[in-house]
């Protein structure tokens, strides 16, 4: 048995009960949709959107980080907490050009996730493809489900 380390549930349920409701509100006000609002503006600090998936052997954390270079992303895992951080530099236009519209976020970003599984921290891998970062966290042997055979005498 393991005590719950974090008071809040680490993972939410798959089906967001408010999703249909939010869509209805968006439709009512003819807004493009609510998730777009999260990307608006340029605050100094931003948390990228993440998904968490798992299968028998791994936990997968995916984060939306479009248009970065590999060195701009830092990944750390410590005490069951995965930290994805980095910076998107402000692109200053060339001398003879001007910014007509700036909606994309720039500045530092950071996201921390409590991983509620036993993870082999030495085998964590990350791939950055199509602007999506996928961190693969292999489950430790004892965390994998094991079939226990019942023997009859």
């Amino acid at each position: 048995m393991r005590l719950v380390r974090f008071s809040q549930p680490s993972f939410q349920t798959v089906n967001d009960p408010f999703d249909a409701f939010t869509q209805e509100i968006d439709r009512l006000f003819a807004l493009p949709n609510y998730s777009a609002a999260r990307h608006q503006g340029n605050s100094a600090f931003r948390a990228p959107a993440v998904d968490v998936h798992e299968d028998k052997t791994n936990v997968y954390v995916t984060a939306e980080l479009p248009g970065l270079t590999k060195d701009a992303i830092d990944i750390a895992f410590d005490d069951r907490v995965l930290t994805i951080s980095g910076e998107r530099k402000l692109e200053v236009p060339a001398q003879d050009s001007a910014v007509a519209r700036r909606e994309r976020f720039h500045g530092r970003f950071e996201r921390q996730l409590a991983i509620d599984r036993n993870v082999d921290r030495d085998q964590i891998k990350a791939v950055y493809k199509d602007g999506v970062l996928t961190v693969t966290l292999p489950k430790q042997e004892e965390a994998k489900p094991r079939q226990i055979e019942v023997s009859f005498n």
Binding site: R27, N33, P93, V99
Partner: peptide, 16 residues
């Protein structure tokens, strides 16, 4: 297509 798409954030830079 209500709520079928999400709107991407854009930057636009104009030069001469």
């Amino acid at each position: 297509t209500p709520a079928q798409f999400t709107t991407p954030a854009v930057n636009v830079v104009e030069s001469k």
